[in-house]
């Protein structure tokens, strides 16, 4: 099974389009730069929303307003970093799939996504009931704290991919 996946990744990596990304002199740095810009838009604005949930930032703006006004920009950032991220992985599949930080980042992203989705399907549905409270309900604050921790972990793990200390083989 592992051998089959490994062989497939090597096949992908040998494709001309994958090689072209890997060896592109300007394309590769451009992808990395765009990935960071997408991160700034997405994570930056998600964190600004989280601070409001936790109750330590942007306190004069009701939460639903932050959600409504920032969501479109967060999505622009997410699409930008997702697309550039996928292209980067496509350019060096064996490098990423054998890197422990890549998997750590992937797991943290899934957890962060689950946390956001759970919050929106439960606590956020009653936002009108609680957003005027001076201290937001525990569920909202916990979702905010979790989001900060998980997205920060995504960023840290993402940066550490470059320092391949434990190569998986």
């Amino acid at each position: 099974m592992i051998e089959a996946v490994g062989a497939w990744l090597e096949w992908v990596e040998a494709l001309p389009s994958s090689t072209a990304i890997r060896e592109s002199l300007n394309g590769y740095p451009a992808l990395l730069a765009l990935h960071v810009i997408g991160m700034c838009l997405f994570a930056g604005l998600v964190l600004m929303m989280d601070l409001r949930l936790v109750g330590i930032g942007n306190r004069r703006t009701p939460f639903s307003e932050l959600q409504r006004r920032l969501f479109p920009w967060q999505m622009v950032g997410m699409v930008l970093s997702a697309v550039t991220g996928l292209i980067l992985v496509y350019g060096q599949p064996t490098r990423f799939f054998t890197n422990i930080f890549f998997w750590l980042k992937t797991v943290m992203m899934i957890l962060a996504g689950v946390n956001a989705l759970a919050f929106h399907k439960s606590t956020y549905r009653f936002v009108a009931r609680w957003e005027a409270n001076p201290i937001l309900p525990l569920e909202a604050r916990s979702a905010g704290v979790l989001s900060v921790i998980l997205w920060a972990a995504v960023i840290v793990a993402g940066r550490l991919i470059a320092y391949n200390w434990w190569e998986l083989r």
Partner: peptide, 18 residues
């Protein structure tokens, strides 16, 4: 330190972008 720098960039970017 590099990783912490990047987390701080995200917060800074959020505050600038708002």
């Amino acid at each position: 330190i590099d990783a912490l720098h990047l987390v701080a960039i995200a917060v800074f970017a959020g505050a600038i972008l708002l």
